[in-house]
Design a protein around this nucleic acid. Structure first.
Lengths: 213, 213
DNA sequence: TGCACCGAACTGAAAATTCAGTCAAGCATT
DNA sequence: AATGCTTGACTGAATTTTCAGTTCGGTGCA
């Protein structure tokens, strides 16, 4: 909790959100954490190790982030719950922004560092899974694979909107509006015969499968 | 054309796609371009300047990428055109992958470097605009703002799916499937009674006000 | 006594950046 | 048509900067 070590990890997340993974200087991190440089090497093997732990930390935190201490929101209005959970990521508060930027950095970094991919894929998968469950509750008529696909789309969309937001291509408010619209498109869709609806998508399976190399 | 300078920019794009903006070493770039390190400083002020030019270059290239030499595909099947254009970005060929990764890096970098944002936003905007036009052709019944919103969603989704693909959370094939599904959801949506079609999503204010948050 | 920690000086290597100078093409002279 | 002058593209070899990582004497404290 008030562990010095995890305080460093927290500080690292903050620095990454401010400067990016590439921009993290262990000196600056030490200052941010209010700690000596040596302590960082005392607790972590080296910068790479620190980074790895930090990204794990971010990933872990993202897990408990949507889930929270309570198992699930589960009010009487499942659609509202769904919107709640997804829109959570598009809020202009320090905490959310910091978390969201750090998560984006994790993604971006993983493109060039295969070591990170496994954790990332796992966390992504549980997120998708959670959203799929909420979708199932909001749309009991649909099939499980259809929900899985929709969940993958919605979560990927959230990520896409987030980066646009943070890179200044899209105001948060507009992003939220768009996301609502997407939820609407997913839930209110009807499929004309012969088109690639949920059934067509189902063949791919539900997994956010781990990529091939 | 066979300008040495633009050859450096091309090489820089390749290196960025391989190592990331963060991982670009001007020495490695020089080797990749087959020139001396010094030439890079002859043509560009410094590493930052080089990066700036390169990212502009990537941005420019992305413009002409979807648009191509022809004004538009315009076959007799507008929906197929739309799918064509969007799925273009999710192909596992060297060129597309390189371009796509570089574009992702541009986005990710812009989060921490405000200088890049303007160009990025402009390019994004023209892309969205192009897609909106295709949507209008595929769905003549809808309103312009609705098409704009759908275009923003679809393009943001493409970006989201791309990073997942490149970061190993999602195989390309599955990404393509999901994207097709999203196009379906956007085009085949029907709105709850009392609402006036996709137009409801577009307006400012509460927009797609399904449910409250 | 041993653990967690400070802090500041220091090392080493990798990268960025500079610099003095070569090379070739043009171009005006005489 | 030989001469000298200029200029832009280019290089290789320094030089400088930037950091990660180390070391070590020292502090508080359980």
């Amino acid at each position: 909790m008030s562990d010095r070590r995890t305080e460093i990890l927290r500080a690292a997340t903050r620095v990454i959100a401010r400067r990016g993974v590439r921009g993290l200087r262990v000196g600056e991190l030490a200052a941010e954490a209010g700690v000596s440089t040596s302590l960082i090497y005392y607790h972590f093997s080296d910068r790479a190790g620190l980074l790895r732990r930090t990204l794990d930390f971010i990933s872990d935190r993202a897990d408990h982030y949507t889930a929270g201490p309570d198992p699930a929101p589960r009010t009487e209005d499942p659609r509202a719950d769904l919107e709640q959970v997804l829109l959570l990521e598009l809020q202009d508060t320090v905490d959310v922004r910091e978390n969201s930027i750090a998560w984006g950095e994790l993604r971006a970094t993983a493109v060039f560092e295969p070591d990170l991919r496994e954790d990332l894929a796992r966390t992504t998968h549980t997120w998708v899974h959670d959203v799929a469950e909420l979708l199932a509750r909001a749309d009991p008529g649909g099939t499980a694979p259809a929900h899985a696909a929709a969940a993958e789309r919605l979560t990927a969309l959230v990520e896409g909107l987030s980066v646009r937001w943070h890179s200044g291509s899209l105001p948060v408010g507009h992003a939220r509006l768009l996301l609502r619209g997407a939820i609407g498109a997913e839930l209110d869709r009807h499929d004309p015969p012969g088109r690639g609806g949920p059934a067509a998508v189902a063949g791919a399976g539900s997994g956010a499968g781990f990529g091939r190399s």
